[in-house]
Amino acid sequence: MGRYIGGRVVSMLVTFLIIASLTFFLMKLLPGTPFNNQEKMSESQIQQMNEKYGLNDPVPVQYVTYMTNLFKGDLGVSFQQDGRSVTTIIGERIGPSAYLGFQSLLIGTIFGLLLGIIAALKHNTFLDYGSMIIAVLGISIPSFVIAGMMQYWVGVKWGMLPVAYWEGFEYTIMPTIAIAAAVTATIARFMRTEMLEVLGQDYITTAKAKGLTSTAVVIKHTIRNASIPIITIMGPMVVALMTGTLVIEQIFVIPGLGEKFVSSIMTNDFPIIMGTTLFFSILFIVVILVVDVLYGIVDPRIRLAGGK
């Protein structure tokens, strides 16, 4: 196991180096100017600014500087916010995003598991079809449509919840539902398939034959075994959450990382785009690694196959 994790960490670092280099060179290709009001600046001012942020150095030198700084945990400084460091900005912004992400993941998982379990236990009944219709809707309807409809009806028309901003728990409810819908749907469908698979296994028949109550069979044998593979879809799920938060933060005007990312795209603030990109990538790679390792721990069959 240790060796397996070691190998994975090495390949993770390689991937990260590639992403960092790729991001850097792509940024260099970007059209447009990184400064706030370049049109108003004189030629010498632009020169001065370029000098200040090291944009006059040859690209390879900039690259080496960037990469060495990166390994010291320094992501550079924002061109537009008067040289504030990108790490500080990410630090300020990560709170709401992380909160929203975790809350959506938690709620989505709970409801998804419930729906999936009910659908499987009541296979081919009204409850099953109902749950699966909800699941198809949840997967299909884009989060921004759900968000818009809630904002209009729940927020504006009925005035039950605040329409936007980020000032307390009630402000988190609508964004959470908008993001959690897709999570719920994905997990519900997956869980239903797994449950049906497990319910057909011999060990369930054994458990019933030895006289266990049906509650015990469902809880101890079916749900437990069926929920293990859920870990495998957690990786793609986190990516979906990232995509979700980008849009949802925009719609609900939440001061999170996604909102910052989008606004820096609009203003060409390269260091922030780069920093956030790298941050998202690291998050993604680490989640995939953790998921794979966790899966190896909970399901020994995978460990034997993967860790050879």
């Binding site: 390949s11 590639i18 991001t23 792509l26 059209p31 990232m242 995509t243 795209i265 993604f284 790679i285």
Partner: peptide, 21 residues
């Protein structure tokens, strides 16, 4: 493919569009 899979597609797509108008 292994390397490409490691890069979140969202990020690649965004960077790609930033470069080409």
């Amino acid at each position: 493919i292994e390397v490409l899979v490691g890069i979140p597609n969202l990020i690649l797509i965004i960077l790609f569009i930033l470069i080409f108008e």
